[in-house]
Measured scan of single mutants.
Amino acid sequence: KKRTSIEVSVKGVLETHFLKCPKPAAQEISSLADSLQLEKEVVRVWFCNRRQKEKR
């Protein structure tokens, strides 16, 4: 599977969401993915990776 490069503008939206809610529910991930025209899996993994980054 190819890596998905995420646009800077999209990263901004994801970051804003992350600050409000670092662990979104599946439904939130779905609606976020739809509005950003990304796959749900890509958004889910982004949040996973972002949470791990917080720990470091």
Score class of each variant (00 low, 15 high):
Cys48Tyr: 10
Phe18Glu: 01
Ser30Ala: 14
Ile29Ser: 03
His17Thr: 06
Trp46Lys: 04
Cys48Trp: 11
Ile29Gly: 00
Lys1Tyr: 05
Leu32His: 01
Arg44His: 06
Pro22Leu: 02
Glu41Cys: 01
Glu28Gln: 07
Lys40His: 13
Lys1Asn: 07
Trp46Pro: 00
Trp46Tyr: 03
Gln27Leu: 08
Gln37Met: 09
Thr16Asn: 09
Val10Ser: 05
Lys40Glu: 14
Leu14Cys: 05
Gln37Thr: 00
Cys21Ala: 03
Val43Gly: 04
Glu41Tyr: 02
Val10His: 11
Ser35Val: 06
Thr4Glu: 13
Ser35Arg: 14
Thr16Phe: 04
Asn49Tyr: 03
Gln52Arg: 08
Lys40Ile: 04
Ala26Phe: 06
Leu38Val: 09
Val45Trp: 08
Val8Phe: 06
Cys21Tyr: 01
Phe47Cys: 02
Glu15Thr: 02
Cys21Glu: 05
Glu7Tyr: 08
Glu41Gly: 03
Phe18Trp: 06
Pro24Thr: 00
Asn49Ser: 08
Ser31Lys: 12
Arg51Cys: 06
Ala25Met: 11
Cys48Arg: 13
His17Pro: 00
Lys23Ser: 14
Val10Asn: 09
Lys1Gly: 09
Val13Glu: 10
Val13Tyr: 08
Glu15Leu: 04
Leu19Ile: 06
Ser35Asp: 13
Arg3Trp: 03
Glu41His: 10
Phe18Val: 05
Glu54Ala: 02
Val42Leu: 11
Lys40Thr: 14
Val8Leu: 15
Gly12Leu: 12
Gln37Trp: 01
Pro22Cys: 06
Ser9Val: 10
Phe47Thr: 01
His17Tyr: 15
Lys20Ala: 08
Lys23Val: 09
Arg44Ile: 00
Lys20Arg: 07
Ala26Leu: 11
Glu54Gln: 09
Lys1Thr: 10
Glu39Cys: 07
Ser9Asn: 15
Phe47Lys: 00
Arg50Leu: 00
Leu19Glu: 07
Lys1Arg: 08
Ala25Gln: 13
His17Gly: 04
Glu54Asn: 02
Lys20Glu: 08
Lys20Asn: 06
Gln27Phe: 06
Gly12Asn: 10
Arg50Val: 04
Ala33Phe: 02
Ile6Met: 14
Trp46Ser: 03
Glu39Asp: 13
Val8Asn: 15
Phe47His: 05
Cys21Leu: 07
Leu14Thr: 05
Gln37Arg: 10
Lys53Cys: 07
Leu32Ala: 09
Val10Phe: 00
Glu7Trp: 12
Val43Phe: 05
Arg50Trp: 00
Val13Arg: 09
Ile6Leu: 12
Ser5Phe: 10
Arg50Lys: 06
Ser35Lys: 14
Gly12Tyr: 12
Ser9Lys: 14
Gln52Tyr: 11
Ser9Ala: 12
Leu14Gly: 01
Lys11Trp: 08
Gln27Met: 08
Arg3Ala: 10
Leu36Ala: 05
Ser9Pro: 08
Val43Asn: 07
Leu32Asp: 02
Ser5Ala: 13
Ala33Tyr: 00
Val45Gln: 14
Glu39Thr: 07
Val43Trp: 00
Asp34Ile: 03
Asn49Phe: 05
Lys23Met: 14
Arg3Leu: 15
Val10Lys: 11
Gly12Pro: 08
Arg44Leu: 04
Lys11Tyr: 11
Arg51Asn: 04
Gln52Lys: 09
Arg3Met: 12
Glu15Tyr: 00
Arg56Gln: 04
Arg3Ser: 14
Lys55Val: 11
Leu36Trp: 02
Arg51Lys: 00
Glu39Val: 05
Lys1Ile: 07
Pro22Gly: 01
Val8Gly: 15
Glu39Pro: 12
Arg51Glu: 09
Lys40Cys: 10
Val13Leu: 12
Thr16Lys: 15
Ala26His: 09
Lys53Asp: 09
Arg56Gly: 08
Leu19Gly: 06
Glu39Gly: 04
Gln52Pro: 03
His17Asp: 00
Leu32Tyr: 06
Asp34Gly: 05
Ser35Ile: 07
Ser35Gly: 04
Glu54Met: 02
Val45Asn: 15
Ala26Ser: 11
Val10Gly: 03
Lys55Ala: 11
Ala33Asp: 00
Glu39His: 05
Ala26Glu: 15
Arg56Ser: 12
Gln37Asn: 13
Glu41Lys: 05
Gly12Arg: 09
Ala26Val: 09
Val10Cys: 06
Lys2Gln: 04
Asn49Leu: 06
Ser9Phe: 08
Ala25Phe: 02
Glu41Asp: 13
Pro24Tyr: 00
Asn49Cys: 04
Gly12Val: 12
Val43Leu: 07
Asp34Thr: 06
Asn49Gly: 03
Lys1Ala: 08
Leu38Arg: 01
Ala26Trp: 12
Pro24Ser: 05
Val8Gln: 15
Val8Ile: 13
Arg44Gly: 06
Leu36Met: 09
Ala25Thr: 15
Gly12Lys: 12
Gly12Glu: 15
Ser30Leu: 05
Arg3Gln: 08
Glu7Lys: 15
Val10Gln: 10
Lys2Asn: 11
Arg44Lys: 08
Cys48Asp: 12
Arg51Ala: 08
Ser30Asn: 10
Ser31Cys: 07
His17Glu: 10
Gln27Tyr: 05
Ser30Ile: 10
Leu38Gln: 01
Arg51Tyr: 10
Asp34Ser: 08
Ser35Phe: 09
Thr16Ser: 14
Lys23Asn: 15
Asn49Asp: 12
Lys23Ala: 14
Lys55Gln: 12
Thr16Met: 09
Ser31Gly: 07
Cys48Phe: 14
Ser30Val: 11
Lys40Tyr: 12
Val13Ile: 09
Phe47Gly: 03
Phe47Ser: 07
Glu54Gly: 02
Lys53Asn: 05
Glu41Ile: 02
Glu41Arg: 04
Glu15Ser: 01
Ala25His: 11
Cys21Arg: 03
Gln27Gly: 10
Arg56Tyr: 11
Pro22Phe: 03
Glu15Arg: 00
Ala33Gly: 01
Lys53Met: 12
Asp34His: 13
Phe47Glu: 01
Asn49Gln: 12
Arg50Glu: 02
Val10Tyr: 06
Phe47Pro: 00
Arg44Ser: 08
Ala33Pro: 01
Lys40Arg: 11
Lys11Leu: 06
Asn49Ile: 04
Lys11Thr: 11
Ser5Asn: 14
Phe18Asn: 01
Ala33Val: 00
Ile6Trp: 09
Lys53His: 09
Thr4Gly: 10
Arg3Lys: 12
Leu38Glu: 03
Lys11Arg: 11
Thr4Lys: 12
Thr16Tyr: 08
Lys23Leu: 10
Arg56Met: 13
Val45Leu: 13
Val10Pro: 13
Lys20Tyr: 02
Lys53Ile: 06
Glu54Cys: 01
Ile6Gly: 10
Leu19Gln: 12
Lys20Val: 07
Val42Met: 07
Thr16Gln: 13
Arg56Glu: 15
Phe18Gly: 03
Asp34Met: 06
Trp46Phe: 00
Leu14Ala: 00
Leu19Ser: 10
Thr16Asp: 14
Ile6Cys: 04
Glu28Ile: 06
Ala33Met: 01
Pro22Asp: 07
Val13Ser: 12
Ala25Lys: 12
Leu19Asn: 08
Glu39Phe: 03
Arg50Ala: 05
Pro22Ala: 08
Val13Ala: 11
Thr16Gly: 13
His17Arg: 01
Leu38Ala: 03
Phe47Ile: 00
Pro22Thr: 02
Lys2Thr: 09
Thr4Asp: 15
Ala26Pro: 14
Ala25Leu: 09
Gln27Pro: 03
Lys20Ser: 06
Lys2Phe: 05
Leu36Val: 11
Ser30Gly: 10
Val13Phe: 08
Arg56Pro: 00
Ala33Trp: 01
Asn49Pro: 03
Thr4Phe: 09
Thr16Val: 06
Glu54Arg: 00
Leu32Ile: 12
Ala25Asn: 15
Ala25Pro: 08
Gln37Lys: 08
Cys48Gln: 14
Val43Ala: 03
Thr4Met: 13
Ser9Leu: 09
Glu41Val: 02
Pro22Tyr: 00
Leu14Glu: 01
Lys23Asp: 14
Leu19Met: 13
Ile6Lys: 11
Leu38Thr: 04
Arg44Asn: 13
Lys40Leu: 07
Ser9Arg: 11
Arg56Leu: 11
Leu36Arg: 05
